[in-house]
Nucleic acid binder design. Structure first.
Lengths: 120, 120
DNA sequence: GAGACATATGCCCGTCAAGGCATACGTCGA
DNA sequence: TCGACGTATGCCTTGACGGGCATATGTCTC
């Protein structure tokens, strides 16, 4: 059915919360249910998704299942953002000045533009 | 309409590709259209989303618009993954055990698992 | 001004995730 | 064995997103 990428997995706020909780310590499902304020089936489904993605794994403990984090798949995410770090490190506010750097061809006599701010 | 979080924005593969392209240099829309193999309206819509999120901005250049990256919002993403880095650095050996990540038949023996190694 | 070109918007549709609900499955205690 | 508890799964509905198409808006050239 739904094979989600790591990016899509983490795009879901509740799933991020689950991961954030498991980052601290292992938790049983009912524990997560209480923390998240979601219905138990919903939580179980999120856990299913996370499990299929290899982000968490469950240790059977009696009638409960203790979920724990496996952060490894998040490296993909980290690897993707990495090249962008230098960008926000550099132009934060000389962003406007960066306009001077010509993309390439197309000589413009018009000079450079004004900001196309969105309306909303 | 949908006000998407940075996570959701980046969850879309085509939007990531757009950002990856803009990370290198500024691009006109038609340029992106050619690279992505998407229809122009689709690209414009993605750009709209990215603009609303402050991830890109457009400089008017004649009848074209040169889009450029603004990586700053990605810091949120980076900030979120940050705490997880120590995890994949730490549990590397534990990882091997869970690579299979299949329905593991953990032999049941009880004992209260309190954040330590309970069984062995 | 007319028409070509570049981009944006509106509308429609197929798809699919997220959650609610009921229920099945599995485990413990008596 | 039975019943309570904890968790997973299946079905269904709703809503939103991505993309295709047609078209509006804007800008350039002649």
């Amino acid at each position: 059915m739904g094979v989600l990428s790591t990016f899509e997995i983490v795009a879901e706020p509740n799933r991020r919360r689950i991961l954030d909780l498991l980052r601290v310590e292992r938790r049983a499902v009912g524990d997560l249910v209480a923390e998240l304020g979601l219905a138990q089936p919903a939580v179980s489904k999120h856990l299913r998704v996370l499990r299929d993605a290899g982000l968490v794994s469950a240790d059977v403990d009696g009638q409960r299942r203790l979920y724990r984090l496996n952060a490894e798949p998040l490296r993909e995410l980290d690897a993707w953002v990495a090249p962008y770090r230098r960008h926000w490190a550099k132009h934060l506010d000389d962003l406007e000045r960066h306009l001077a750097t010509m993309p390439d061809e197309t000589p413009r006599e018009h000079g450079v533009p004004q900001r196309g701010r969105t309306k909303r």
